[in-house]
Amino acid sequence: MMKSRILTAVLTATVATSTLAACGSGTDEAGDTAYTIGFVNADSLDFHTCLEAGIDHEAQSVPVEIVHANSTRDPAKEQANVEDMIVRQVDAIVLQTVNIDSLEGAIAKAVAADIPIFLTSVGGPDMAGVAGAELSDVKHTGEVAAQWLNEDSAGKDVDVAIIAGAPGAASDLFVGGFKSALGPEAKVVFEQPGMFQRAKAQEVAENLLQSHPDVQYVFVPNEEMGFGALTAFENAGRSDIKIITNGGTEEGLEATSEGRFAMLVASSPYELGVKAVSTMVDLLEDPRDEPVIGQIPTTVVTKDNVDAAPAYCG
């Protein structure tokens, strides 16, 4: 009994030590870098890994040291990650927030600690405290998608389905923008959440085929879900339903060039990461009174102009 307890204790200690050592080895110690920037990522989807790749690439060329943290979709963990960055006394924080609603607390904490904070992709209603931001205008993306649909359908009456993301700010903005710009001939006959997940979107698309098999267009606000819908349609032998989505990964562009996605609003999280670090370093060198806020450029891609899309992951 005693032996097994000792064995347990030794094993636990070994595992814990090696885990900590492994975690520690991932963080570079400060060398000759001018600044240390804390990057708090929101998740580990394609978008987030490519954003991080852009940040790391630009950090090497400046050079600055990057301290990484990931909030794994948890707003509470995001707050803790920002607090950790403050305790580590980083020179600036770049934040890809989990959720627009958790931003306020993170910004307030950084401002109170006098650490400049830069937001990527998602901004809040009050941007007064931030040093800068490079934002994705999701409402505009929805509008652009609807405008393309209006042109493509050329005034004919069409049935449209929406496979939205998880209920909440981002998805609501995408869908709101899309609906607001739809022409009077386009009728939304189906709208259900795909929770930003490929598997769930596929399930919803399968159910859509049962309830509204005559649908002509489907708007899906992210590419992961777009592929879920595409698989559902292809499994059912339906190549006639036009999928309009948002993303720009290599896989997505290939699907667009083959006509499997009718239209893709493409942007590059890698370039967003590069821009975030370069702008943040500029702001550390030359602080401004007002936040420097830019928009992430987007490109409307169809099978005719796939080459015009920016590289998604560098």
Partner: peptide, 11 residues
């Protein structure tokens, strides 16, 4: 076999 691809967040 149903999804055709692995992606983060599956299962």
């Amino acid at each position: 076999s149903r999804l055709g691809a692995a992606s983060p967040g599956t299962a």
